[in-house]
Amino acid sequence: MRSVVAPPAAGRPRSALPGFGLSLGFAITYLSLIVLIPLAGVFTKAAGLGWDGLWQVLGEPRVLSALKLSFGTAFVAACVNAVFGTLVAWVFVRYEFPGKRLFDATIDLPFALPTAVAGIALTALYAGNGWIGQWLEPAGIKIAFTPLGIVVALTFVGLPFVVRTLEPVLRDAEKELEEAAASLGATRWQTVTRVILPAVLPALVTGFALAFARGVGEYGSVIFIAGNLPQVSEIAPLLIIIKLEELNYGGAAAVAVAMLVISFTLLLAINTLQAWSNRHRQRSRAAPALPHPVLQGEGS
């Protein structure tokens, strides 16, 4: 295993550590075979329809309403999670209460619980005869088998994204900032809204985006509770499956591409926004004092 005796390859600096070519080569090959090439296949397939074919599929009222439903419910659920996820993260980072560790572990339940299980469990709870449904139905609120049910399922699925993204940022927030705000006469409410929230906003946006992206594509937890009525509660992923079962591969690919493109565009926009706000934040911050060289290590 004489590792790096060859002269350095052009284009990259030579490193004393071995295994770069092997590990990178394997990673890229595997990534291409499993993810990139198959994904490119969807775009090729959809492109095969031509612009007219593509617009024809996407113009179908059933497709349009499915896309609207998927993105709309995902957005509403992500908003619900932004509010309640922030609340949960705040309470778990800042307060002590009995049973905290147990509750903390359950926050990750949606990550661990198979979506189909979540789907049938939520349906059982919110159906007219379920534990929750039986109280809501008489009040005129129907959740299961309506778009509202989809929002409930997507809220379940997306919650940990917001909480787990916010928690470390809240935990690391400097106490000095809050003490400074208080010493300058700010009320607690002012401190929270003007000092703490702006500091954690980028993390909140990230969590929101993650929950939203997950919600758009979610299938397992939704189909049981949705009712799947065409143009009412039929989500886009389900429509892809229906088109596949009709052996309409092109149509399925077209809907998939529409979902992918919208999702990626939104995520890209959010990333750009964040990168911009980070730069802005760093620029407005005063230049930090140089740390002591002993602590810093040498930069050479």
Partner: peptide, 10 residues
């Protein structure tokens, strides 16, 4: 960020 259904579809 890809829907599981799309993962199957590809």
């Amino acid at each position: 960020s890809v829907s599981p259904v799309v993962a199957g579809l590809i």
